[in-house]
Design a protein around this nucleic acid. Sequence first.
DNA 1: TTATTACTACGAAAACTTTCGTTTTTAACT
DNA 2: AGTTAAAAACGAAAGTTTTCGTAGTAATAA
Lengths: 130, 130
Amino acid sequence: MGQSLPQPTESELEILHVLWDHGPSSVRFVNEVLQAQRPVGYTTTLKLMQIMHDKGLLERDEDKRTHIYTAAISEEKAQQKLLSRFLQKTFKGSASKLVLQALGQQQPSKAELDEIRALLDNLEEKDSNG
Amino acid sequence: MGQSLPQPTESELEILHVLWDHGPSSVRFVNEVLQAQRPVGYTTTLKLMQIMHDKGLLERDEDKRTHIYTAAISEEKAQQKLLSRFLQKTFKGSASKLVLQALGQQQPSKAELDEIRALLDNLEEKDSNG
DNA sequence: TTATTACTACGAAAACTTTCGTTTTTAACT
DNA sequence: AGTTAAAAACGAAAGTTTTCGTAGTAATAA
């Protein structure tokens, strides 16, 4: 059984994105990437990553002086959990409403549309009940 | 030009849902609906609704002693804004990724799938570029 | 070995959100 | 008018998240 990790906060999510995108990283590196987006102090990033480590959201290698952090949860799993909560809170659980709004809001490419369509076909097959 | 309202917090969103579902309501009524879901004091709900009024998220009719509050933003508009932010924060703006996860996560009914498909067809027509 | 640098650890302040006790106001009833 | 009931207003505490200053520690260079 997998221990259930807490939901990351928004700032924590930013950090997770850096780690997902770039792989295991030092605090320094993560902070530099964040800095490119907005001003944020080094110790702020450090503290946040320490908190995330305490929570179990990050793992870290302490062998070297400069600790190397890794996301303890996959991007997909994290997105899934966040989406589930968001869906409940904002759309009262109606995935189709969310999907319609998401599609209406941003114009996906043809390739993406095809991918979605393929998934729909797949779902429809299984959907023998109603 | 429409003044841009702040994003509602989670608790504020709960209150908005009550108003969207039941129309203009008193604090007492909103609190009773919330109470049915979880324990929450009357003055807590009152305070929150006053704050929301200050922020411009709610309008209120003060004619009668018991003030009547109304959502100052439509459900769709609010969902749109929240979704936009969530999409950015969690999926880095990729609507198709979000849609795929949302569809995979919850099994929409056949009717809903058809509705989504119809929208896809519609989008594809307009999508002459790629 | 001392000085410098780059890092972690720690604590606490600041900002934001949620909660509710207390007071004040308003209306209704006697 | 005086009393009571229900509501609004207010202030502040509690909880959470974000921020960063300061101190301590390990590695490096002089």
